[in-house]
Simulated assay, not measured.
Amino acid sequence: MVEIDLDTKIKFLHGFSHKTRIQILDCIKEKEKTVSQIVNDLQGNQSNISQHLACLKGCGLIVGRQDGKFVYYRVRNQLVHDLLTMFDVVLEDVQNDVACCEQYID
């Protein structure tokens, strides 16, 4: 297995470190969507969502597909999809501990 640089790991994990980015990943986990569809689903604003999409793309978690004037976003591949599913599986087990964690800084 190839050893990954610590800074690269941190940049990758940064993609998961904001509520809006997690909402976006959940929103497009099963089906690709345009920015407008994501904004509508999340009841967010387009500028904010676009910034978070750029972060997710930069972290390698999502890709965009141009179709005419629209860009459709989806999770990068099955590995990312599986990772998102695994987060939910692990959280089912540890959610009470996480909910009580006093170390969380917003």
Rank of each mutant, 00 (worst) to 15 (best):
K29R: 14
D41Q: 10
K57I: 05
N45Q: 08
L42T: 01
I22N: 02
H81I: 02
V35Y: 02
L25P: 01
S50A: 09
N77W: 07
V63L: 11
A54R: 14
D88L: 09
V80N: 00
D7F: 04
I4P: 01
V75R: 02
N96Y: 09
N48S: 14
K29G: 01
D5L: 04
E3I: 12
S50L: 13
K9E: 12
T20L: 13
T20W: 02
F12E: 07
Q103L: 14
R21K: 10
K33I: 04
I49G: 01
I105P: 00
D67S: 04
C27N: 10
L53T: 03
I24M: 04
S47P: 00
C101I: 06
V39Q: 03
V39T: 08
K31Y: 09
I49E: 05
L83Y: 11
L91F: 12
G15Q: 04
V90S: 04
F12G: 03
L53G: 00
V98N: 03
V94P: 07
Q43M: 03
M1K: 08
D93G: 02
C101N: 14
I24H: 05
F12T: 07
N40K: 09
E92S: 09
R74Q: 14
K57A: 11
H81R: 11
L91Y: 12
I105W: 07
K9Y: 13
C27Y: 06
T20V: 13
V71N: 06
F70Q: 15
L42Q: 01
I62Y: 04
N77S: 09
N45I: 11
L13C: 10
K9L: 14
D67P: 00
G64I: 08
D106S: 07
S36G: 06
L83M: 11
G60R: 07
Y73I: 04
V71L: 10
E92A: 03
D5E: 12
L53W: 03
L53C: 05
G15D: 06
L25Q: 05
V89I: 15
E32Q: 10
K29F: 08
K11C: 01
K19Y: 08
L25E: 03
D93P: 00
N40E: 14
V80S: 00
I38P: 01
D67Q: 09
T85L: 10
L83H: 02
R74K: 15
F16E: 03
H52W: 06
N45M: 05
D7I: 04
N77I: 08
G68A: 02
I49Q: 03
V75H: 02
A54K: 15
Q95K: 15
S47G: 06
I22K: 02
Q37N: 08
T85R: 11
K33H: 05
Q78G: 00
N48P: 01
F16A: 00
Q95N: 11
R21W: 07
S50T: 15
Q51I: 14
Q66L: 11
Y73G: 02
C55I: 15
